[in-house]
Design a protein around this nucleic acid. Structure first.
Lengths: 214, 214
DNA sequence: TAGATTGTTAATCGATTAACAATC
DNA sequence: TAGATTGTTAATCGATTAACAATC
């Protein structure tokens, strides 16, 4: 089944809509118009309507959007209505931080394994899971249903492990390593390049200084 | 001084150029053409030349770009040639993980303070810095030169602290909290919304499944 | 019904790619 | 010099915004 191609820009905005709708629900707001929402989100009503209409007509003329309904629908679109078993490769500071993110489990992202190379870490429990050695990974992948692998290993190790993940049929990698993974087309890679984000901040700061101090 | 407006898309790509050029330097590559680089980076030579020419003519006809020179110049553009004193607000898992990121210090991002609300953490050393109480933050900001504040606090606390940061003249916030900070125009906010990144991955996974399994 | 607001088409704006003259 | 490759202008493509008929 081939679905209509939806632009990356739209997809990147969906989680933000989801977040705002969640907040509206917390505030017991029942319905909202694209215009009101656009003001809250500092965007245009037109963009909101265009974005949502990629997925269906969730609103009603003269009424707007039902907050709860829209929240649920966007949740479905984002795949938050199913459980996603995840493993973490790299039990360093970042790996452990991600393991302890409560929000993820709430949204269906369920941690089922955590791995590292460092023998010192073996057996230490993180969020109720004992850290395993990366050498056990291929066996683990064959025995367990894993959807998403989180890569928080150093560059070289990350590259090596990505190959093993692909060989064992993993189709989604959340990559925190400072490299672009070379994976087949059917493997989904979502990168979080923290240092690049910090450099962007640094750029904006420098530019601001140049424009205002001199 | 008003500089020509450079699009966000271009700026977001700069750190990636910087990373690739760094790798080329490690491999002792002296010069590279936009065409070669475009193949490595899976982009177009045209885009590379356009991007770079926003900042100046770094190349030479018939020769290409000198890797070391271009690396240095992009570093300067990104503000990596100066020291940026940073503080971390929130000494939880993520805060500590970021504190221990070796790469940051290498690029001039120098951690000078780490804060939390939890009294249990007070005085515990992270990367040689004792965790301080957030109540001491305003005083600390008055006494010390701080450029960047890293926010790894929960939502509510983050909102509150952002106001204190702004009041005390902080001009750059690296925000990991799950909210959009409402700050004055002259405050630069760079968001890292991890859960939104994970949802994007989840969306792509769901879409892939729909297109291929059914 | 009248007013509000969507869904959707058309217009505009911006970003990417192509092309090529300039020049090393 | 001839070949290579940039810097830059022009063409294309895509995304955002505006407008408005449809309809609740």
């Amino acid at each position: 089944m081939e679905t209509k191609q939806i632009s990356k820009a739209v997809i990147k905005r969906l989680p933000r809509y989801y977040r705002y709708l969640g907040e509206l629900m917390e505030d017991n707001v029942e319905r909202i118009s694209s215009n009101e929402l656009s003001k809250k989100m500092h965007t245009t009503a037109s963009q909101i309507r265009q974005d949502l209409n990629n997925f269906g007509g969730f609103g009603q003329q003269g009424y707007g959007y039902n907050v709860h309904y829209l929240y649920t629908e966007i949740g479905k679109i984002l795949g938050l209505d199913t459980i996603h078993p995840m493993i973490i490769l790299g039990a360093g500071n970042l790996g452990q931080a991600l393991a302890n993110y409560v929000d993820f489990e709430k949204r269906g992202f369920k941690l089922v394994g955590i791995f590292d190379v460092n023998p010192v870490l073996e057996g230490i429990a993180v969020r109720g899971l004992e850290i395993q050695m990366l050498s056990e990974l291929p066996f683990f992948l064959k025995e367990n249903n894993v959807e998403i692998a989180i890569l928080t290993l150093p560059k070289n190790k990350a590259k090596e492990m990505a190959d093993i993940l692909v060989e064992n049929g993993i189709k989604a990698i959340w990559n925190f390593a400072h490299l672009d993974l070379e994976t087949p087309d059917d493997v989904i890679v979502e990168n979080v390049h923290l240092s690049e984000s910090l450099m962007t901040l640094s750029y904006n700061l420098s530019k601001y200084r140049q424009e205002h101090v001199e």
